[in-house]
Amino acid sequence: MIGDIFRIALADPMVNFLVILNNLCFNSFGLAIIAFTVIVKAATFPLTLRQLHSTRSMQSLQPRIQEIQKKYTDPKRRQEETMRAYKEAGANPLGCLGPMLIQFPIFIALFYAIRLVLPESPEALENLSSHLYGWSYIQHAVPMKTHFLGLDLRQTPNDAGFVSIEGFLVLLVGITTWAQTKTTVTSPTMDDKQRAQQQMIAVMMPVMFAFFALSFPSGVSIYWIVNSVMGIATNVVTFGLPRFNIKPLVKVRANTPPPLDAGHATSPAGPTIPARELRTANGPGRSKRQNRRRRP
């Protein structure tokens, strides 16, 4: 059942889309994968933008979060106030998961699609027939060319050996993932624990993905590398590279959080005044439409 849903809703459309891209990209399946990556990145850009908003908002919230941490000793209360601050600023700590969650099934479906579209055995080609739509434009393209820039797009570095172009891709997967993690903005007000966690992620992610890439067909690694390079570009354009004195090219709006005392006329013991009452205009992180919905 789940397998059928996966096949009909995701894998088969992807297989056929890749074949069409292959035809449009001069019968080069490698170029088709790159074009596919660009299209997916463009399609998920609204989500990425939301993530960037969220990151910026989180960043601007840090002073207030630290203030809350200092002010409240009760962990439960501290958590409540922190969450409230996030909510009012329109920041979602899990906001960065959106693009990742979208990427995940696409990535898996691509893995599946590449194994289907570039069959490694006659049986696999025979099986491909049941995944292709009946249009002649698609059917005549089969089988695809399996090589791109000296790479066998089907082969995994495990099969090809480490001293091979496919093996070099593993390195590129690691480097681009690392570079993407490093260019993702981090808050300057992070405490040491958070900074240590961030540094661990920055090391673990590339290592983990490079390890996975050992078992990926090189076509999947190409997707990952191109995706990471585009992610790096987005990060640089949005956040700049402070270390190299590169300023952001575009400004992403961050919601300005109200100061703790103004936004929350609260005391550890006293009653909480609803933040809504203290908001001006639409309120932080809220549109006119959202406010209209709240009105009776």
Binding site: I2, G3, I5, F6, L10, A11, P105, I108, A109
Partner: peptide, 8 residues
């Protein structure tokens, strides 16, 4: 998603 990926 993990289940889907396993199937895939």
């Amino acid at each position: 998603l993990l289940a889907l990926s396993a199937v895939g």
